[in-house]
Amino acid sequence: MYETQVAEELSRWKRKLEKRPSMVGRYTKGLQMKMNKLIPEKVHSVVTASIKNMVHATLVGSEYTTKKQPEEALSLKEREEKVFSIMKSYKRTAALEGAGTGAGGILLGMVDFPLLLSIKMKFLFDTAAAYGYDVRDYRERLFVLYLFQLAFAREEKRSLLVEKLEKWDFEKERLPEKEEYLATFDWKAFQLDYRDYIDLPKMLQLIPGVGAVVGAVANYHFIDVLGETAMNGYRIRWLSE
């Protein structure tokens, strides 16, 4: 019965991803795309390299991967109860971090970016372990990276990323060797989508007086979005297996 309920929720989530964005959303995306074109390619390269290095350090860092032992012999319902608990904890952590850096103005606001990125990746690793997947396997870390990308991707890219998750058993057999698997990833598209998604709330977070509130609410929301994506991504694998 629980898996039937999950399958229905998964179907609704996929339909939500296919919905056309609102007029305000389309206007914001159009404005961000115009701004991206005005930014010199050298700047894009620096930002891309920075995000790549931060994510890469998290993906290969032993302090993240060695502690995340997969949960064994649990039902889907038991696993998801754990995931909800994990999500609740990380929402609280992210909100406190956003409030703290938001209250500090521009200087601490700049610190928020790598801290929040680290929190998100740790959350995904814990979620993977709760569903029974071992993130010490580099292929599982790449799956985590695609979940992250899907959570903050532009509308036109979502269906392609969902298809990649649905065909993961086939996709992972085509992956390059462990030493090269991150080199083939489209880091520029990754950083543009992620940056555009968080741009507006993160700029508001720098405003004195309201930054703490905006930071807390925004970070809480980001973990919420990431959690919904991660759960449905692993539901796809669970139901197919």
Score class of each variant (00 low, 15 high):
M1N: 13
E3D: 12
V6P: 01
V6Y: 01
A7N: 05
E9S: 13
K19R: 10
S22H: 02
M23L: 12
G25E: 10
Y27Q: 15
K29G: 10
G30L: 04
L31C: 14
Q32E: 12
Q32T: 10
M33V: 12
M33W: 07
K34Q: 13
K37T: 09
P40E: 04
K42R: 13
V43W: 04
H44C: 05
H44L: 04
V46C: 03
A49Y: 07
S50C: 11
S50L: 12
I51S: 00
N53E: 15
H56D: 09
A57R: 12
T58V: 05
G61V: 09
E63D: 14
E63F: 11
T66I: 11
K67V: 15
K68Y: 04
P70I: 05
P70W: 06
L74Q: 08
S75H: 03
S75R: 02
K77H: 10
K77L: 13
E78K: 11
R79P: 00
I86V: 06
M87L: 09
Y90F: 10
R92T: 15
L96K: 14
E97I: 14
T101V: 08
T101D: 01
T101N: 13
G105C: 09
L107N: 10
M110S: 09
M110C: 09
V111Y: 06
V111H: 05
L116S: 14
L116N: 11
M121P: 00
M121D: 06
K122R: 14
F123I: 03
L124F: 06
T127I: 11
A128P: 03
Y131H: 08
G132T: 02
Y133I: 03
D134G: 07
D134H: 08
R136D: 07
R136W: 04
Y138V: 10
R141D: 03
L142K: 04
L142F: 08
F143T: 00
F143Y: 13
Q149G: 04
L150D: 02
A153M: 02
A153F: 02
R154D: 14
R154Q: 15
E155W: 06
R158K: 15
V162C: 06
V162F: 01
L165C: 09
L165M: 15
K172E: 14
R174T: 11
P176Q: 08
P176G: 09
K178S: 15
Y181A: 11
F185W: 12
D186M: 03
W187N: 03
D193P: 06
Y194D: 07
D196I: 07
D196E: 13
Y197S: 11
Y197M: 11
I198P: 00
D199R: 14
P201S: 03
L206E: 00
I207G: 11
V210Q: 06
V213A: 12
V214W: 01
V214A: 03
G215Q: 00
V217E: 07
Y220P: 02
D224H: 13
D224A: 11
V225P: 04
E228A: 14
M231W: 02
M231Y: 07
N232R: 09
I236P: 00
R237S: 05
L239R: 10
S240D: 12
